[in-house]
Design a protein around this nucleic acid. Structure first.
Lengths: 141, 141
DNA sequence: CCGCATCCAGCAGGATACTG
DNA sequence: CAGTATCCTGCTGGATGCGG
């Protein structure tokens, strides 16, 4: 069994307003949570799943087909991680064959907004970024 | 020499408004850029660097000390990746000893806003998430 | 249909030592 | 001071096969 406890890469993110604390470094303990979320948002499949789920409940294999390239294993793992964080809920219909629907929780839906903001930024600046990369690579030969 | 070309995990993010396209899947080529950015934002050190750089130019070892736990190697790699994407600029003062200042570009500064939005979301919901995790782990024994 | 277990390649990322 | 080079480890994530 693959444990999923979310490696939760430790470290801190000095978020605005670390008006300086006397102890360790900056707010340390508290905004490590931010890094945690960033890691989940940044992983290969999480946000793709969230975006597909945005339109309503979707079954496992629908999800699998909707997200091009994802393996069964990774879909399961991603869904479990999202479920563990309370972003996705899992509804089992004990029929034959079994039916499992996944949907966003209220928390999951609330995450869409900031992620979409980031997505808009990415779309708005992708050409600039591509140009910067090309230029950087050209100068490095 | 470690190449840095940003593994750019391929895949697509079906962003709002994929009113369905006839071809491959969803917008495919275009919003793969979003995943790309998400990966950079989600990696272990990038955003910590960006946040420290927010206050103005910072030298290499200042950065190293400011970001607790980062290795020299990873700081270099992270800075190169950010520089390649046009988010950070590098200014060398050829003195003895050498001095190198890193600062955010305009693009880099513009990234702070959506990332801070995500950070606020994380801070606002971290207790809910922690509770969800504890509950999930409890039920799984 | 849903999902777990196993095996395996590749890369992220840490520690260390060495240069201009 | 600001890196680069080398080595080594553990996790991520893909492929495949089995079970309820």
């Amino acid at each position: 069994m693959d444990t999923i406890t979310t490696s939760a890469q430790e470290g801190t993110l000095p978020f605005a307003g670390h008006t300086d604390v006397t102890v360790t470094d900056h707010v340390a303990g508290r905004c490590q949570a931010v890094n945690d979320i960033l890691a989940r948002v940044g992983d290969k499949w999480s946000m793709q799943v969230v975006m597909v789920l945005a339109d309503g409940p979707v079954r496992f294999n629908q999800l699998r087909r909707a997200i091009d390239g994802i393996s069964q294993r990774m879909l399961t793992r991603t869904l479990r991680a999202l479920e563990r964080d309370g972003l996705v809920s899992r509804a089992v219909t004990p029929s034959v064959p079994p039916r499992v629907d996944y949907s966003l929780t209220e928390l999951g839906r609330s995450l869409r907004e900031p992620v979409l903001a980031l997505g808009s930024w990415a779309m708005a600046n992708r050409e600039t970024i591509d140009a910067a990369r090309t230029e950087f690579d050209r100068r490095a030969i």
